[in-house]
């Protein structure tokens, strides 16, 4: 079962990929592509586009695997960051090319932490959720949807019907408080 692959095994696979080991690349794909596809799909909300995006993500992983070692990140965090950033780049380009916000951007997309997040009981997540819980509910929900769906300031401003600068200073204050809370 792919999801049972231990983090240290994933890390070892990435390092072998950096050495251009194709078998390791195949194994890494088998172990992680469902998660990275899920990531792209959640951000892009479009299956065909997410399939294209995830291919590009693995090209990037193949080309940049040597960078992983220097980040000191956990392997899944690194892989998901590569996928998320790539999906968000595509999302921005799509919406900006469409001349602004598309309808999907303005839809209220489940601000609550979804059933999947509820099921998670990891200590780390409890700590993050605890700290998000200390923020005003709308700010915490904006930060969650920014992470999960790649929402931009512009989209959040439109959805919460507040000026761009207002949402930015709200969320910046929220981010600073979140950091303080996590470092306590």
């Amino acid at each position: 079962m792919p999801f049972d692959t231990a983090p240290e095994e994933i890390g070892a696979l990435i390092l072998r990929v950096a050495l251009r080991d194709r078998k390791a690349f195949d194994a890494l794909y088998a172990a992680t592509s469902a998660k990275l596809f899920g990531t792209c799909l959640r951000v892009l909300q479009n299956r065909a586009e997410a399939e294209e995006a995830v291919q590009e993500v693995y090209v990037k992983i193949w080309l940049k695997a040597d960078r992983f070692a220097v980040t000191g990140q956990s392997p899944m965090t690194w892989l998901i960051a590569v996928a998320r950033h790539h999906a968000i780049d595509r999302l921005r380009a799509r919406r900006e090319a469409a001349g602004g916000l598309d309808d999907a951007a303005l839809e209220i997309r489940d601000p609550a932490p979804g059933p999947e997040a509820m099921a998670v009981a990891a200590d780390q997540n409890r700590q993050l959720e605890g700290c998000l819980g200390e923020l005003e509910a709308d700010r915490a929900s904006a930060l969650r949807s920014a992470y999960m769906q790649g929402d931009s300031y512009a989209e959040l401003a439109a959805r919460h019907a507040v000026p761009l600068n207002t949402i930015r200073s709200w969320l910046r204050r929220g981010l600073m408080r979140l950091k303080e809370c996590l470092e306590r």
Binding site: F3, A34, G38, T77, P113, E116, A117, A122, L128, Y147
Partner: peptide, 11 residues
């Protein structure tokens, strides 16, 4: 930790 919320999807 929020990435736990990304559900794996078969390709």
């Amino acid at each position: 930790p929020m990435a736990e919320g990304y559900l794996p999807q078969d390709l």
